[in-house]
Write a protein that binds this DNA or RNA. Structure first.
Lengths: 146, 146
DNA sequence: CTACGACTTCAAGCCAACTTGAGGTCAAGC
DNA sequence: GCTTGACCTCAAGTTGGCTTGAAGTCGTAG
């Protein structure tokens, strides 16, 4: 099987060597051995790196991503947790959609002040629905939520 | 006009007071004055906080978000940049969609190993297309890209 | 009018995710 | 067989985004 030096992995994945070493340290990727000192990677790691990049883009932490791979290196989670994650992503997408629409609207809107524009306000209301956990009940303590 | 103490803003927005002060220091939000020592915020800031939360969720840094507001506090960017941002978000959404579909697929797939599953591989190929900037040409230097 | 608790400032601390630097090893081409 | 440059380790540094703590101020309910 064809093995790659870290530099080749870096070039093909766009991820710098320092980061690859760091990822290996965290257990996100694995080198299959050494040639002299040099780590050897096989091609599967490229796929894994795509998945990692994807996960990062989706806002997962490295530790969370690591948890999604079993020690065998395969994606491995209880099915219902996978589905729950997928649903999180769906919600995340809804936020992005709102922001995207807001930006597009602002780009096109003629109103002198956005605060006065009904479309803008509607978008912002949609925004608050998706963003604010709203823990209003019980306001009697000091600066809370820590 | 009805003004709010920082604690009320915190409760209504879900953003802790320490963070609100920090945001004000960065210029992301503004207090309109003081009552004694206490900052007074008006209701518009809640809207702005939604927008900020949205921007954060979309992966923008606080500095980038600050740059989207003019000093008047209104969303303010050249129209084409706004549209470019919106397009970034669109791409971002595509990534999320791929990841979501991948997770859902993994949750349902019967194949013993995902690497052998054609659907999985197809999703991963889609993933690489969206994630890898791929600066392959010219590999002749030391550990580059810094 | 006093006590309480919600606020204030400012400096320091913390975590994640990397990057940088110094000093060293090694494989391959000349 | 020597040089070169791509790799190695390990510790320390950096950035972004906040939080924490100490020490102090002040509005308001009782």
């Amino acid at each position: 099987m064809k093995m790659m030096d870290i530099g080749e992995v870096a070039d093909r994945s766009g991820v710098p060597p320092s980061t690859l070493r760091y990822y290996e340290e965290l257990g996100l990727i694995r080198s299959v051995g050494r040639r002299g000192l040099r780590r050897q990677f096989d091609a599967d790691e490229l796929l894994k790196l795509s998945l990692i990049a994807l996960g990062r883009a989706a806002g997962f932490s490295l530790v969370e991503i690591a948890a999604m791979f079993g020690q065998d290196g395969q994606l491995d989670m209880p099915r219902d947790e996978l589905r729950a994650r997928a649903d999180d992503l769906q919600r995340q997408m809804a936020k992005l959609r709102v922001l995207r629409d807001t930006l597009r609207h602002v780009a096109d809107c003629k109103a002198p002040s956005h605060l006065e524009c009904p479309t803008f306000r509607k978008l912002m209301k949609a925004a608050s629905r998706t963003t604010e956990p709203r823990k209003l009940p019980a306001r009697t303590g000091a600066e809370r939520r820590r």
